[in-house]
Computed example of a mutant assay.
Amino acid sequence: MTQQAGSSRLLRGINESAALRLLLDRGPLTRGDLRELTGLAKPTTSDVMRRLQDAGLALVVGRTSGGPGPNADIYDVNPDAAYAAAVSLQEKDSTLVTAICDLSGEVRARVTTALGEDPVRSVTDAVRKASRAAKVDRLDHVQLGVPGAHHDGTIRFVHLPGWSRPGLIDDIRTALGTELSVDNDVNLAATAERSRGIAKDADSFALLWLGEEGLGLGIDLGGRIIRGARGGAGEVGYMPTGPDGDFQDLVGGPAILELAREHGITADRAATAATDERLLAPLASRVAYGIAAVVAVLDPAMVVLAGEVGQAGGAPLAAAVGAALRELSVLDTEIAATGLTEDAVLLGALDTTLTAVRTALLSRR
């Protein structure tokens, strides 16, 4: 009898997880829709939906009308069943951008706060301010994006006071009192490009972040972000390009502005300079030089140009880089401009934190 009871509980959990996943991915749905998609019997489907409602995970959002047969309840996930936060550290202006979303993925609030002297207090204050704006009193997961790598609880390559202190991640997690994950900002941008941008259907791709301040490479192989043994995969700004320089010296923001001046272009931002036709060929030649090394090692199906410079240069810069790359590489690699116009890092952090919350909910059924 004990074994049968255990098996029954396991089966109920499997059925509830299946129904909840369908509501998350394809909702709203009627019980008829759920029966068709899961193959469950009518009484079983009714029982599953009752339990999900009792657990506060699903609710009735309407009724069908005007069709053959009786009207039917329409179910969807309860957006207030869980909340998550995404936090993006903006090194260039020493701020934190924080967004709160509910279980449906709707963003309830977004706030920008200045960094203080203590990173722990800066993050916790930012999350609490955003939570108040969203009228949320609990969080199930927080995703922090940083312009650097992290390994063994320590963030590296972030040039802000206190952010490379050993044990910082654990201290932030303790102060928040909830689950916390940390990832490189370019990895998060690649996550957003995969879920929302031009790389949706790519088997594999690399996202080259051409920023005003720094460079980075997000590597997506078959839908999996490659981070490396110590979280440093993709730190291409440090990639040597000769005995006296690295890739940052070729296509970092200051280098692009210097290149612009050499071609008679006056601009106060690298992204502005990248829109000038006179800069396309010389800038593309430099970008292609670094991409050729990436392609030789990874052979991605596509390389996406992102960041402030990649976004501003758009399709013309991507086309020029593609032409320059064909002169350097024997591999035929598509070069494309990012398909995102919003803050890609924050979008990727939202996607990641929401996935973590949904996975945890499904595993508990």
Rank of each mutant, 00 (worst) to 15 (best):
R121K: 12
R51F: 07
V120D: 01
E91P: 00
T45E: 10
E117G: 13
L40F: 14
A133H: 10
T64K: 04
T112P: 01
G116H: 04
P79M: 11
R63Y: 11
T64C: 08
E106N: 14
T95L: 04
A134G: 12
V77F: 07
L57Y: 04
D102M: 02
R121A: 14
S65Y: 12
L52H: 05
I74E: 11
D118P: 07
E106A: 15
D80T: 08
V123E: 06
G67H: 13
L89G: 05
V120T: 12
R63M: 11
K42A: 13
T95V: 00
T112K: 11
V111D: 03
S104I: 06
N78L: 01
V111P: 02
L52R: 06
K129G: 08
L115C: 06
T112M: 04
T113R: 09
I74T: 10
D54G: 03
N71M: 10
P68G: 13
M49I: 06
D76A: 15
A84Q: 09
T98Y: 08
T113Q: 06
R51T: 07
E106W: 09
N71E: 15
P70C: 09
A84H: 06
P70H: 05
A58N: 06
E91K: 03
A85F: 12
E117C: 00
D73H: 14
Q53E: 12
L57I: 02
A133I: 00
P79R: 08
V87Q: 00
I74H: 11
G56P: 02
D93P: 03
T38E: 07
K92S: 13
Q53R: 15
G105M: 04
D118R: 05
T124A: 09
A99R: 07
